[in-house]
């Protein structure tokens, strides 16, 4: 329901036939560069990777320096432990580690005399059995939407993060659901809407990630910011990360299950 805000935003945009957009110059402050951690471990076979980069000031070009001199280890609560080896572009990879549902994983990073730690628990598996395609109307515009087919377990606390890839390129949208509503039921919520165009012939890959609360909060916060920006949406904040030590990004141990479909 994070889209309610953007629906009202749409309402406003309807009221304003005369509304207009322009690029403006703003005097923005520059944040200091911070370590950015992109770390994922799933129930699928490895290798898993941890990518370390640096953030840059907003006005700079979007070229993010990679960090190659870190010591990165991942361990779990059953005694597995592995030091990752550096490949290239800031990416460190595992060789042996296997992600197993229900286990809690710890990520340790040492770089330039600082240490960063994160923990994430891989939830129990929820099966994505298929994708149902349907057409919905949004303000006169017809849109293809996807209904991921799965049944939420009876226990509360299941979180889902959907990643949509169309013709090989990842869509810049955040779809985060939990079972605060529809707990224990088969899914009836669509992925897609007014801002996602799926056209005939498109190859769609939908990944359903089962994530823990921290990971959910991180991406949910990002989804809340996607609506309006200053003046129209939620007051922007940095998403709460599970990484201690002052780094940005997230360490996500998640269940991953993908299905693909071709739009007829």
């Amino acid at each position: 329901m994070s889209k309610i805000t953007s629906v009202f935003y749409l309402l406003v945009s309807i009221i304003l036939f005369t509304g207009c957009e322009k690029v403006v110059d703003l005097d923005l402050q520059s944040a200091e560069s911070k370590l950015v951690v992109e770390a994922n471990i799933t129930n699928n076979p490895g290798p898993y990777s941890v990518k370390l980069t640096k953030s840059v000031p907003f006005d700079d070009a979007s070229i993010y320096p990679s960090v190659s001199n870190a010591i990165v280890t991942i361990s779990d609560n059953e005694g597995q432990k592995e030091k990752l080896s550096y490949t290239s572009n800031g990416v460190y990879k595992t060789k042996l580690l296997q992600g197993i549902e229900g286990r809690t994983y710890t990520l340790d990073i040492e770089v330039d005399g600082k240490t960063y730690t994160a923990q994430s628990t891989m939830p129990q598996k929820v099966e994505l059995t298929g994708i149902k395609l349907s057409v919905l109307k949004f303000g006169g515009q017809e849109r293809n939407v996807l209904f991921p087919q799965y049944t939420d377990p009876l226990d509360f606390g299941n979180n889902y993060n959907f990643v949509l890839t169309v013709n090989g390129s990842k869509k810049d949208i955040y779809v985060l659901w939990n079972d605060n509503t529809n707990n224990g039921l088969t899914n009836e919520r669509p992925v897609g809407g007014p801002d996602v165009e799926l056209e005939s012939g498109d190859e769609v890959l939908l990944e359903m990630q089962g994530v823990d609360n921290m990971v959910y909060n991180y991406f949910f916060t990002l989804s809340q910011l996607a609506g309006g920006g200053p003046g129209g949406g939620t007051t922007p904040t940095n998403p709460p990360t599970n990484i201690s030590g002052g780094a940005l990004g997230i360490f996500s141990a998640h269940i991953s299950h993908s299905k693909s479909i071709k739009i007829p």
Binding site: P57, V163, T237, L248
Partner: peptide, 21 residues
């Protein structure tokens, strides 16, 4: 009105994310 603008940015899983002050 008083608002919050981004001060930095980074990349995560292929998406650009803004950093706020």
């Amino acid at each position: 009105n008083a608002v919050t603008y981004p001060t930095g940015k980074y990349n995560l899983n292929g998406s650009t994310i803004y950093q706020y002050g």
